[in-house]
Design a protein around this nucleic acid. Structure first.
Length: 548
DNA sequence: TATGTCTGCCCC
DNA sequence: ATTCTGC
DNA sequence: GCAGAATGGGCAGACATA
């Protein structure tokens, strides 16, 4: 198959924002595909070369892609960066650069899907000295054989984001329509194998066979997510009364698979982290009294001397670690707080209700100081819930509300469970820099550097960036307001005269190695503009120190 | 050898 | 992670 | 309400370069 055919489908998809239309376009296309092509095509539609549970990665992002475009298009890196700023998208930039070049060189339409696959599949194995150069060349080879439209999508594929409006949901529905299977059945199969290339190949060969895709030990499944609510009352409204309310720990999600003496652990995004946490493996073997099971838990880092929880930042030093793993398990031991049971001795518990899963879980965990059931209560009392929340936000993030009747369902669904987090009081800060937006924010500034005030010398100290909480209207308004304040301009950002004051909300003030103030906000978001405030009326560095 | 830059369906 | 938006 | 697409801080590892 020619890559051009696929490119044309992407262009068609880009022309609409209606999900039903996208579904219909993909349905038609999927029906025409050969079974040996469909898996790869489905991945590309979602902008991922490899399925999520596959540890292979390309290791190419914006900067390497800019370099590749410069080399392939015969222009300077600076020029590509300028074009990127104008287009707000490296794919569009690629289209332009390749288009310019094709005006002077001859183009032969010979790029095939197989060739694209062949080259992209070689990339993860390119490691060691000189590998960056090799990766550039192999992407460049594809771009050289691409027409402008193909260059656009090749670039987006490599960067991992198609921006066509197609994601897992649209793929699910289109596969359903194409192979006459319900979206529900497809989603169920996908949640268990976490691989739409496999699901689509299975469907293509024989749609009936997707019922053979079952929960499998040592194969991570998609996890359940929880929406946010802002009060105890709302929490109960979402999940009903009574509910189980549990402490929400500030650590990392852990999916534990155990068979006899073999244990493997996965992150929320399906990456394996068994090697990084030998201490956790030991606790699991000692304290989980089941031969075969899949359990969900939150893992938290602790200070070995004080036995107090450490901030998430500390735990994160262990997550991707390859060296000094044993030293870290002594310096920052973890504790495991189990909260759900997905499988026990060959039986899937996914369709059992939460209360039953929880009871079973309690029965197989022999608690000790390092591994236990997440702290929680079953109650219909708002004051009891309030009490646990108050307790929960002292050392941890907040609480979860869980519907006793809910089955285990991946993704976030209304009515199954919610989280209630603490949030800090707001801060008034001034905007001192702005960054050009990408994609749908291409015409505006898309994010901003915030600063607090040092009253001693009247200088502004940066304390992090802000890029969410704005409506489109607010982006428009703010961009207009900031343009006249630009003092210095470079490719990706502008430096501004401090003038515009914003109120931001955040979860926590962290120590920061990156910002002038020495602090940064965790999960910052805009609450409102403070047009009534002048930049010298904002939070001072000592205010920030006190809150930290 | 030391430092800087880039990357991650990263973790949150 | 949070948030906004079209459907 | 769902799904998709914008955007946040900060970490270790890998590679390039000084």
């Amino acid at each position: 198959m020619k890559f051009k055919e696929l490119s044309q489908v992407f262009t068609k998809l880009s022309s609409t924002t209606k999900r039903l239309e996208m579904t219909a376009i993909l349905e038609d296309f999927f029906k025409k595909l050969k079974c040996e092509d469909i898996g790869f095509v489905v991945q590309l539609c979602m902008g991922k070369v490899f399925p999520a549970n596959d540890p292979k990665e390309l290791g190419i992002a914006n900067n390497m892609m800019i370099e590749t475009l410069a080399i392939t298009g015969g222009v300077s890196v600076e020029d590509v960066k300028k074009l990127w700023k104008i287009h707000g998208d490296l794919g569009e930039t690629a289209k332009y650069v390749i288009g310019k070049k094709k005006q002077v060189t001859l183009y032969s339409n010979d790029l095939t899907l197989d060739k694209v696959k062949e080259n992209l599949y070689k990339i993860p194995d390119m490691t060691g000295k000189g590998s960056v150069e090799k990766k550039l060349k192999i992407v460049s080879e594809l771009l050289s054989n691409a027409d402008p439209e193909e260059a656009l999508y090749l670039t987006r594929i490599v960067l991992g984001s198609m921006r066509t409006g197609v994601g897992e949901g649209v793929v699910r529905d289109a596969l359903g329509k194409a192979f006459n299977v319900t979206s529900d059945d497809i989603e169920k199969a996908y949640n268990l194998c976490t691989d739409y290339s496999y699901v689509s190949e299975t469907l293509c060969k024989n749609p009936k066979n997707i019922s053979n895709i079952k929960l499998k030990l040592f194969s991570p499944i998609k996890v359940m997510l929880f929406k946010k609510v802002s009060s105890v009352k709302e929490g109960f409204e979402e999940v009903g009364k009574p509910a189980i309310i549990e402490v929400k720990y500030d650590g990392m999600r852990l999916q534990i698979h155990k068979l006899g003496n073999e244990v493997r652990m996965f992150t929320r995004n399906l990456d394996e982290v068994t090697r990084q946490f030998p201490d956790a493996v030991k606790y699991i073997k000692e304290s989980i009294k089941a031969n075969e099971c899949i359990i969900e838990a939150e893992m938290v880092g602790f200070n070995p001397k004080t036995d107090k929880p450490e901030p998430f930042q500390q735990l994160s030093t262990r997550i991707k670690r390859k060296y000094d793993v044993d030293k870290l398990s002594k310096d920052l031991p973890v504790k495991i707080f189990c909260f759900d049971l997905l499988m026990l001795d060959k039986k899937s518990f996914l369709d059992d209700n939460f209360e039953e899963r929880h009871n079973k879980l309690v029965s197989i965990i022999k608690p000790n100081p390092n591994i236990m059931i997440a702290k929680g209560i079953k109650t219909d009392s708002e004051s009891d819930a309030e009490k646990l929340f108050t307790e929960g936000i002292k050392e941890q993030e907040g609480v979860m509300f869980k519907n006793l009747k809910a089955p285990y369902q991946a993704g976030s669904r209304v009515g199954f469970g919610v989280k209630l987090k603490s949030h800090m009081t707001e801060l008034d800060l001034v905007i001192t820099e702005a960054y050009y937006g990408k994609g749908k924010r291409r015409d505006w500034f898309g994010s901003f550097t915030l600063s607090c005030l040092d009253p001693d010398d009247g200088k502004y100290l940066s304390i992090g960036k802000l890029g969410t909480g704005f409506s489109d209207e607010q982006f428009e308004e703010l961009t207009k307001k900031l343009k006249p304040l630009v003092m210095k301009e470079n490719n990706e950002k502008v430096v501004l005269t401090p003038s515009v004051v914003v109120e931001v909300e955040y979860e926590e003030i962290q120590k920061s190695p990156t910002y002038d103030s020495g602090f940064a906000l965790r999960f910052p978001r805009l609450i409102r503009f403070r047009n009534d405030k002048k930049p010298d009326e904002i939070a001072t560095i000592s205010d920030v120190e006190e809150l930290a």
